[in-house]
Design a protein around this nucleic acid. Structure first.
Lengths: 125, 125
DNA sequence: TTGCTATTACGAAAAGTTTCGTATATCTTT
DNA sequence: AAAGATATACGAAACTTTTCGTAATAGCAA
């Protein structure tokens, strides 16, 4: 399990790294700029700090360094959810689930998928 | 809807304020210290800053000031969930719901409650 | 009244985050 | 080889967060 806690900005970058598996600073910065304006060196610095923290690893063989996330997406998100639940929902994951669900607009197929997961959970017990 | 974004520490305090409706700094600090050690003046300063930000209001009539949250619990949590989903789940609330549910250990009664919510959502569409 | 305790006020240090400017190195093209 | 473009490195400024030390004030008790 990852023991670091990414900031929002770091999480955005991890998100992109998980999607693409590996990416250069330039690629990440371009992706970020589709949403909002960020300077190249700003993104670079952030990714360098993430490297110092051990959040990402990189291959410096080529001129353009290639970055990748260290921790698995699922593990990282689990610890993040756990933290969020502890701080904002008194430790009750179900409270979070109910409110998130009630608030979102869900398609029928999504709801079907969810019902399936519930069935599995019921069988396990 | 609340437009401020509470930090984790601020969220912990808001959480306690919603529970008790109102509370003095001393009460909040005592509650916080059940989990981890925090100095009284640290909690005080934090709550004063929250007041500056308009996150909490207070009654200074008595010597011991009485604090209360400004925004509604449900509204605040909704914006927080929205942020969380945008940053960590590419905007998909259902992704969050599925992972949170899969990760938590849920009782049958909780699952029943959830199924009921799903039924309601299905009827609405 | 004179201390003792509890509370808020003030300010500031330490640490972390975010953003860039500038410098340096490397690759490409001519 | 020289010029131009592209990358990373370094350092620092601006801001926010977190934590407390110290001071001032109000209430209580002997």
């Amino acid at each position: 399990m990852p023991k670091f806690k990414p900031t929002d900005a770091e999480m955005e970058i991890l998100q992109l790294l998980w999607e693409k598996e590996t990416a250069s600073v330039r690629e990440i910065n371009d992706k970020l700029n589709e949403k909002r304006e960020v300077g190249y060196t700003t993104t670079l610095k952030l990714m360098q700090i993430m490297h110092e923290k051990g959040m990402v690893k990189r291959d410096t063989a080529a001129r353009s360094h290639i970055y990748a996330a260290v921790a698995k997406e699922h593990d990282t998100k689990n610890t993040l959810i756990q933290d969020f639940v502890d701080i904002a929902f008194n430790g009750s994951a179900m409270s979070l689930v109910m409110q998130a669900l009630g608030n979102a607009s869900s398609s029928q197929s999504e709801l079907d998928e969810l019902k399936e997961l519930i069935s599995k959970l019921e069988q396990k017990s």
